[in-house]
Nucleic acid binder design. Structure first.
Lengths: 133, 133
DNA sequence: CAATCAAAGACTTTATTTGCCCATGATAAC
DNA sequence: GTTATCATGGGCAAATAAAGTCTTTGATTG
């Protein structure tokens, strides 16, 4: 089990958009170059972020992506869920009588991780990054 | 990202061995039937647990598997690591100057989950299970 | 209308997981 | 010591998921 590269690309893209001057439109091209990934592949990831309501896109010349209004509230967990989905990391499909105690423990463990990630805002990290510059 | 079925099989096997009369040898056959998985596949998972020092095996007629001495201390995390390996769930291989802040946050999140799983002993769960019977 | 850029679908490639088959080696029972 | 039993290990095959490409469409700007 591993987080996908797509999640990594999504997190880095969001952080970059949060550091760049607000409302400025950034094209896939530029985002892809920074991360050394093909623009077409990154494009699919960005579309997921658009559908999740985290960024918005503008077509046509000088188009691109930028963050949406509520972006300061967006957490790491939001981004991860947008890319990886919301399903539980552990699912016991064995049919052993009552509900699975192992499953319960695993889900609780996952929630510990999620609790932390829910409190890590991309905006907070962006603030720290710009402070270093 | 998902925990593998192999991890689920391993956890259930360990719990079963912890509930069964101590020192009794259980064959793959029996373990596989309970979980509705092929004996050959489960066998490979069990071999990993043997190599991790959690269970021991006896070949030959009436052979099988049983827990090792220190089994009461074995945690969920130990079992998961034995099957899935010890690598971090998140690895940023982008080469952007300094060390990756995103990576740091993700690793910390993972540690929250691990902290919990380290404190969940299979022996504790076994105790609860037998209490219900 | 021409250039630019995101969206979307189909498709290929690669990696991982899951599972099976068969040969080998250890052990107990007879 | 031979036979039946059972774990170990290698190699292979199928299924699934992740990563990446190509091409068409549709929107927007100039």
């Amino acid at each position: 089990m591993k987080f996908s590269k797509a999640t990594n690309y999504a997190l880095h893209t969001m952080l970059f958009l949060a550091v760049v001057p607000p409302n400025k439109l950034i094209g896939v091209q530029q985002l892809a170059e920074r991360q050394e990934v093909s623009p077409t592949y990154l494009s699919k990831i960005l579309t997921k972020l658009v559908k999740a309501g985290m960024i918005e896109s503008t077509s046509g010349a000088n188009g691109g992506y930028r963050l949406k209004r509520n972006w300061e509230e967006i957490s790491f967990l939001d981004i991860i869920h947008a890319i990886e989905g919301n399903a539980s990391l552990f699912e016991c499909d064995l049919n052993h009588g009552q509900d699975c105690m192992i499953q319960k423990i695993m889900v609780t463990a996952e929630e510990k991780m999620e609790d932390y990630l829910r409190n890590q805002k991309i905006s907070e990290l962006a603030k720290k990054m710009t402070a270093v510059l």
